[in-house]
Design a protein around this nucleic acid. Structure first.
Lengths: 140, 140
DNA sequence: GCGTTATCCTTCGTATACAAACCAAGTTAG
DNA sequence: CTAACTTGGTTTGTATACGAAGGATAACGC
């Protein structure tokens, strides 16, 4: 990712975009062997927190646009990581469940995310790590 | 953008993605009246720092993939914000220049970026702002 | 009930991202 | 000098993002 040219103005938006790019890229590389994208992994983690959640609630939890999540769910369905079931009470609602394929890799995939986070923050001291996360939370 | 659900694990990658989403979205809204996207604006700022830069060097400066920058330049060309000129010394090289249309809006667009950054960080104290930027820089 | 609204999700259009394949123009080794 | 390699850009294919419009299904009001 190299280093940021000092000529680029003191622009937080730019710094944030590049920090995100780096984090995203590192995790993406770790996920490649599983044929999962970052968003697909995130959706799986969301479902492990709450099986049977609706697509709308999952979108809120993960702060994803419903138009975006729609495509992600399609691809997770095709690759058999999740199941969709129409709610019997309300025909508009989709309830989402993970499959056995996902369950078999659950611990592994969660550990992968943990290690990706550690790697990302490895140049920070413990205090800096805590601080950085707090600032990011406050920003959102 | 609402707030981040505490159930989502203590995941920096996620926090970073959402912070970026927020920053990007806010700036995007400010740019809409100009029919510029965030990346297009970034390229203009890059060119104002160094007119006549090559596409490859601009990509390095802005840390953008060459495949990505190629499309951005096309659209900036179509909307007449920039000019492309083939380097007479090396036929592979494209040199990039801004147009008069861009020059007329230069101060306004730079001020817009500054105010977008201020807005983004408005909930932080001055110390937090400085710290946050330092941490982002260190990460990259 | 039945039309008006609201909700859930999909589809479409545009703009990133970025890997991979490709072409064209230069450079270099033997 | 020519084959091999390198470099600068474009193109293609897949996957986000997200506004906007559309279709299906409920819920509500009178």
């Amino acid at each position: 990712m190299s280093q940021i040219n000092p000529n680029i103005p003191d622009c937080t938006i730019f710094l944030l975009a590049k920090a995100y790019q780096k984090a995203h890229g590192q995790f993406k590389a770790k996920l490649r062997p599983y044929n999962l994208t970052n968003l697909q992994h995130l959706v799986l983690e969301g479902l492990w927190l709450e099986e049977g959640v609706t697509a709308a609630d999952l979108g809120k939890l993960l702060i994803m646009d419903k138009a975006t999540i729609s495509g992600v769910l399609d691809r997770l369905l095709d690759s058999e990581w999740i199941r969709k079931e129409t709610d019997p009470e309300d025909g508009r609602v989709l309830r989402l469940y993970t499959t056995k394929k996902a369950a078999a890799l659950k611990e592994e995939l969660i550990a992968l995310r943990v290690s990706a986070n550690e790697e990302l923050l490895s140049s920070f001291s413990h205090e800096e790590q805590v601080l950085f996360k707090r600032l990011l939370r406050d920003l959102a």
